[in-house]
Design a binder for these strands. Sequence first.
RNA 1: GGCAUCAUGGCCGAGUGGCUAGGCACAGCUCUGCAAAAGCUGCUACAGCGGUUCGAAUCCGCUUGAUGCCUCCA
Length: 493
Amino acid sequence: MSLHKEQQIKIYNTLSGKKETFTPIEPGHIGMYVCGPTVYSNVHLGNVRTFMSFDMVFRYFKHLGYKVRYVRNITDAGHLENDADAGEDKITKKARLESIEPMEVVQRYTVDFHNTLNTFNFLPPSIEPTATGHIIEQIELVKKIIANGFGYEVNGSVYFDVHKFNESYTYGILSKRKLEDLIHNTRALDGQSDKKNPQDFALWKKAEPQHIMRWPSPWSDGFPGWHLECTTMSTKYLGEHFDIHGGGMDLKFPHHECEIAQNEAAVGRSPVNFWMHANMLELNGQRMSKTTGNIINPAELLSGKNDIMSKAYSPSVIRFFIAQSSYRSILDLTNDGLLSSEKGFLRLMDAINALDELKAGTASTFDIAEWQQRCYDAMNDDFNSPILIANLFEAVKYINQLKEGTATLTAEDLELLKSSMHSFCFDILGLENVGITDSSSEKLAGAVELLIELRQQARANKDFALSDKIRDQLAEKGIQLNDSKEGTTFDVK
RNA sequence: GGCAUCAUGGCCGAGUGGCUAGGCACAGCUCUGCAAAAGCUGCUACAGCGGUUCGAAUCCGCUUGAUGCCUCCA
């Protein structure tokens, strides 16, 4: 039984500005391309949010049984500091500033990127291609664009002729811009003498003599333009026409617009059915910015070593926080928001952990199948994870009532509830359960359990001075005792 | 300046032309030797001003504000 045949997904398509019913080009298969990072510095928390959104999309498709090819590139060359002729490649600049090889920069920050994503429990993409690994293909693409009359060479560099392109196609359909408006609003920049028009963009740049990253081409020893790699690699691995292309909102223009133009100029068709854009992450109501200091990186957030948050937050709490808002909304990262998410997340995990102890009854007082479909409906509606989470908390209520004995489920329904909770929380949202597993924690547990036993004896003897001393002093050390009818458990805060 | 997106209760955040989001906080209750934890119950909003409509927070217009892009950015 293929789940994806039963669940009809709607996706907000930037191209149309509407939610559209999603139908893969090839039934049962999905091709998805997401613009990955330029590895010239440590991964930005905003990147994490964007990629996490698409990780969730990837996870959901997989859960539904689609065969997904998810391509997420690594930009390790070609990303210019700016569009002027003197614009320097970001990797090259970083290498120059630190007096190391460009490939050392690439290696260092690629490793950081992967480590961070692993920490946040990301699934690896199916293919993670690099720009430098596809120089030949990029050169071939430039040749094609020139042959079709949409590229021109000046002094060893090749530019895309946006004005010429706009005569046969429409430049700006994705970002809803008109070329005319762009012409009027383009600021004058120095050093653009090589281009016919300021709206043109580089397909190939001639390298200055001191430029280390360079490859031979018919036009010059140089390097490819930034937009080119995504067109090249998406075409190579997903074909000239594929299902979904994603990225951060800020890539909509010009990057994604240029990708469409390059594809149309090369093969005469728009490459992508669905364009998806994840919105920005703010910190305390303002965009993150290195210059103003309003910034926090993933490692600082996870370790608690920062001046912005009151404590460290686990990767799953951050994932949960992010999943509580829609990927298309601007999300404001705040300490209060994280604290509130953390409490909610722990309550959800408590409920899931309680599932295994529940006993089946002879009848069901909840319609679990209907509840499960509501969870699917939420995800089918443009991956609405906040609504999914609202439904998960409804299940928390069910679980608590089952625990209290005020509700019952048949064995079959109980099994469905368990498997659904696991699927939605862990497989789809990518959360990880909190549990005590390492050996030092086990030793701690042993010690605390001894104290719990001593406290129980004191309470039985009505020696409340002693029992309260044990409880309160443990609390001071961050160990909280939880009394219930079944006995006493503890949490490390 | 241009283009685009958005403005929801104490806070965070969904959503819909008429009927409960959810989380956190808060209040009451249950439990408890007292607490804490946990559970249950309650809390009803949609920037401002016009318009369309039997009815709009939801559609349209204007105003105000925020954010993104227009120069590198997920």
